[in-house]
């Protein structure tokens, strides 16, 4: 079976972002960009499905500017067989991204679309669910374990207060939570090999999808700073402050 893995290029998770002075956005000039950590987990899961013999082909896809090729090469170094860049320099909202991925699903007919649960830039946690809705596929979100059996997948999901296991009919959209697996590092020979793997470039127009959003960002501000309080010298002093000053115990 084919597995489609949409990935996203985002600011590296080690970078502390700063808001631009004009409050239009965060400042991403000259900061390190990487594959979204949850997408790395999704790629790893797809590779493991192929190693188990469940998946036969892994296709990575991303939407973004030309530089997003780097993340597709990373996905191919990790084990994806080929990839598609849907090239646009415009910001693409979750619904538009889901519409573009739905077109790729229509073309490629994967049995599993394996995605990260959310990207660490916009923190929306929407695109996998939206893609499932648009395509009418079943969904297994926030997965911490995936077992494919025939035309079904058993998905253990992280829910409030524990774990839930559901069975979904394939084709399905699955999203990876943090503990689904620990992604491997790409080995140098595989990085070299990935340079020769096929990378198709398309545009949103090729899929007949217009990149326009009804959701506008008016302003981006730094969060309210919390000021440091005082240091107390002993547990007794702490108890006194909590009882008599803060009055919370």
């Amino acid at each position: 079976m084919k597995v489609l893995v949409p990935v996203k290029r985002v600011v590296d998770y080690n970078v502390k972002v700063r808001v631009k002075a004009d409050q239009s956005d965060v400042d991403l000039a000259n900061v390190k960009m990487s594959m979204n950590p949850f997408c790395e987990i999704a790629v790893e899961e797809a590779v493991r499905l192929k190693e188990k013999g469940t998946a036969t082909e892994i296709i990575a896809v991303t939407i973004g500017s030309k530089t997003a090729q780097e993340q597709l090469r990373t996905a191919m170094a990790l084990g994806a067989d080929r990839s598609i860049l849907i090239e646009t320099d415009e910001a693409v909202d979750s619904l538009t991204a889901a519409k573009l991925f739905a077109k790729v699903v229509e073309e490629e007919q994967p049995q599993i679309v394996m995605m990260g649960k959310q990207s660490i830039d916009t923190d929306n946690n929407q695109t996998p669910q939206m893609l499932a809705g648009l395509t009418g596929m079943s969904q297994g979100m926030f997965a911490s374990k995936i077992e494919v059996e025939g035309d079904k997948a058993k998905v253990t999901r992280e829910i409030d207060g524990g774990l839930q296991t559901i069975e979904v009919k394939l084709p399905a959209v699955l999203s990876a939570d943090l503990r689904l697996n620990e992604p491997r590092y790409a080995k140098l020979p595989n990085i070299m090999k990935a340079k020769k793997k096929p990378l198709d470039t398309k545009t949103p127009a090729d899929y007949g999808v217009e990149v326009a959003s009804k959701l506008k960002t008016l302003k981006v501000e730094p969060p309210a700073e919390r000021s440091a309080g005082i240091k107390v010298g002993s547990v007794d002093e702490l108890v006194d402050k909590l009882k008599n000053e803060a009055k919370v115990v």
Binding site: D93, S94, L95, A98, D123, N124, N125, Q126, T127, P128, Q129, M130, L131, A132, G133, L134, Q139, M141, F142, R157, E158, I159, D160, S213, K214, L215
Partner: peptide, 23 residues
């Protein structure tokens, strides 16, 4: 924005052809 809401609401948004505003 709890487990159920995060799971179900984006699918609803897609079915209604609208974006979702998260959290």
């Amino acid at each position: 924005a709890t487990g159920v809401g995060k799971n179900v609401f984006p699918r609803v948004a897609a079915l209604l052809d609208v974006n979702q505003i998260s959290e």
